[in-house]
């Protein structure tokens, strides 16, 4: 009898929850939600937050070597924005009942994933342009639909993230444009960067639909509004004309505009490479995680000091009050 009642209650909670999502209303942290919804959101939001802070590293690699003061300041500000994105995404994630320490632990232990593209090295200044243009470009395509996702804190964080990302993308494109209007050496640098970042950027939109494990459920919860393949096509259609304007050649022999479909046809993606990098065999996987872990471990005594100091201050205040 008891059991029946519980089941009924659960059913009605689930009905309310699903009706809310269907009405495009937001789910807020204090609302009831199925455990699977909570877990999926912790996974996705934290993965997103981790990508932001790991993503600071390849670009941070060029801050001290930026070629002009203006570029140095712009790059610093950009990487700082990524830290800000990480901060509000972690905060959004924390509303689901998990601590930031735990989230960091998942990143450092390899349990949590981050965007694989950040495991590629940044070799020249043009990579900073290419990352802004392509990687932030692909990120925006992934993220714009999330501004209307069902979980309130995530959707609100994404509105701000997307605004800044679109600024970053323009900034990256402007770096590429400057290089392409420069000397032959600079043009070559830009072409080389496009050659190396093009395919990983396409992979960033995720595995093909038949390989993607989370799509169906995520669609229902509005965590996803288009499939990976649709997003990838959108990215290619939007980016190829931009490469044309730069006078650069997209490194795909099979790339061709299809008059019938109104889209670009493109070549085979090397998914073997994608999965190898996901599994930890990219050029910089180890460096990225150890840099994050190192920052956290070396910062422990600093965080401890801040807590100890704050405790002492509170103690003093209490004494004074007495």
């Amino acid at each position: 009898m008891e059991n029946m009642k519980e089941k009924e209650q659960m059913k009605s909670l689930e009905d309310i929850f699903e009706a809310k999502i269907a009405r495009d209303e937001k789910i807020e942290p204090k609302d009831w939600m199925p455990e699977k919804y909570r877990k999926t959101h912790i996974r996705q939001i934290s993965q997103h937050a981790h990508s932001e802070i790991v993503g600071m590293l390849p670009e941070g690699n060029w801050i001290t070597r930026a070629p002009s003061l203006r570029r140095k300041v712009a790059l610093l500000a950009k990487v700082q924005d990524e830290a800000g994105h990480g901060l509000y995404l972690y905060s959004a994630c924390e509303t689901l009942g998990i601590s930031r320490e735990e989230l960091y632990h998942q990143l450092h232990s390899g349990k949590a994933k981050y965007s694989s593209i950040f495991n590629y090295p940044t070799l020249t200044w043009a990579d900073i342009g290419a990352i802004g243009w392509l990687v932030d470009g692909a990120a925006i395509i992934n993220q714009v639909p999330l501004c209307s996702t069902s979980f309130g804190p995530y959707a609100r964080a994404m509105v701000r993230v997307c605004k800044e990302e679109s600024f970053h993308q323009r900034q990256g494109y402007e770096i590429m444009m400057t290089l392409c209007n420069g000397t032959q050496e600079q043009k070559d640098m830009a072409q080389d960067a496009l050659n190396r970042w093009w395919w990983p950027s396409l992979m960033m939109l995720g595995p093909t639909d038949d390989e993607s494990t989370h799509t169906e459920q995520s669609m229902k919860w509005k965590l996803k509004r288009k499939t990976n393949d649709e997003l990838r096509q959108q990215f290619i259609d939007q980016t190829v004309p931009q490469a044309d304007i730069l006078g650069l050649k997209v490194p795909d022999e099979d790339l061709k505009y299809n008059n019938e479909t109104g889209h670009y046809d493109f070549g085979e993606i090397d998914w073997e490479e994608f999965w190898q990098v996901v599994k930890g065999h990219g050029m910089c996987n180890k460096e990225r995680i150890s840099a994050r872990k190192n920052a956290w471990d070396k910062g422990e005594w600093v965080r401890d000091a801040a807590i100890a100091y704050a405790d002492k201050q509170t103690e003093k205040e209490v004494k004074e009050a007495v």
Binding site: M56, L57, I63, A83, A291, A295, V302, R303
Partner: peptide, 25 residues
């Protein structure tokens, strides 16, 4: 600037980067 991305917390990382930005400005 060398520290950007390597701070003991995300908050101090952001604050230190701000100082670098001010100084370079």
């Amino acid at each position: 600037s060398e520290l950007c991305g390597h701070g003991p917390t995300l908050e101090t990382d952001i604050a230190m980067t701000n100082m670098a930005l001010d100084l370079l400005g």
